[in-house]
Design a protein around this nucleic acid. Structure first.
Lengths: 120, 120
DNA sequence: GACGTGTTCAACCAAGTGGTTGACAACGCG
DNA sequence: CGCGTTGTCAACCACTTGGTTGAACACGTC
């Protein structure tokens, strides 16, 4: 994996490490929203939410357009692929390793307990 | 999703936001390792690596056993499921939304441009 | 029991994060 | 134009984070 992708992945994971930001992402899967709309449910200032959005934007999770003085926020669903790829790669690797281990254990079992090909 | 799971998810994402920790996880998919072995490739103190491992352990990504003065580190692959679940849930939601949008756009297209059922 | 190896604990430091408030920019509208 | 609404920028604060070094703990070995 390239250094750029590594960096991106770090920003994405860091962005999603915050429950408030995860909740915003969750809500953005339903519909685009303005900063004010996004801020409404939380007990923090609009400025704080604006900062959160900057983090999400820098991670490429979200994009913003213009509509007069409003800045509609839109979820960029493609980043999910980046994460899924990373996770699945290692999950698969780990699973392979466990099956190798299983095979090894089975073989040791054969060697230790019973003569080859001599099982119920 | 319960508060506990939310919390867990935060710790998992935060743990994986660090490239060094992601690399350790990556290496642990190949084989268990001691703290010293894990530390070797990096240009930081063993203590720093020990701290990283504590973060991974608190996130439930890793467990440690005892072998004399050594503390072998083992990857707990199940957490990948937690992440995958979260990601896939919202990915699916986002995709559904986009298909709804596509349907809407197609319908508008019909209404505006061409009489219904009158296409090449 | 003393020594070497592997690991953690404690104190500290610089940099980053999430929050605040206050000022200001960019609009639509009367 | 002046005013309310929407959002960002800047400075600041408390807390966390990733790193350091030095001491201590936990073993196997001599």
């Amino acid at each position: 994996m390239g250094a750029a992708a590594e960096d991106r992945l770090s920003r994405v994971f860091a962005a999603l490490a915050d429950p408030t930001r995860r909740d915003m992402v969750s809500r953005l899967t339903v519909a685009d929203a303005t900063v004010g709309e996004l801020a409404a449910p939380y007990d923090v200032s609009v400025q704080a939410v604006s900062k959160h959005l900057k983090v999400l934007e820098d991670a490429g999770l979200v994009s913003r357009s213009r509509d007069a003085q409003r800045r509609p926020v839109h979820l960029e669903a493609e980043v999910f692929d980046l994460m899924t790829k990373w996770i699945e790669r290692y999950r698969r690797q780990a699973e392979e390793r466990f099956s190798r281990l299983d095979a090894l254990l089975a073989e040791m079992d054969n060697d230790d307990d019973t003569p080859r090909g001599d099982r119920p």
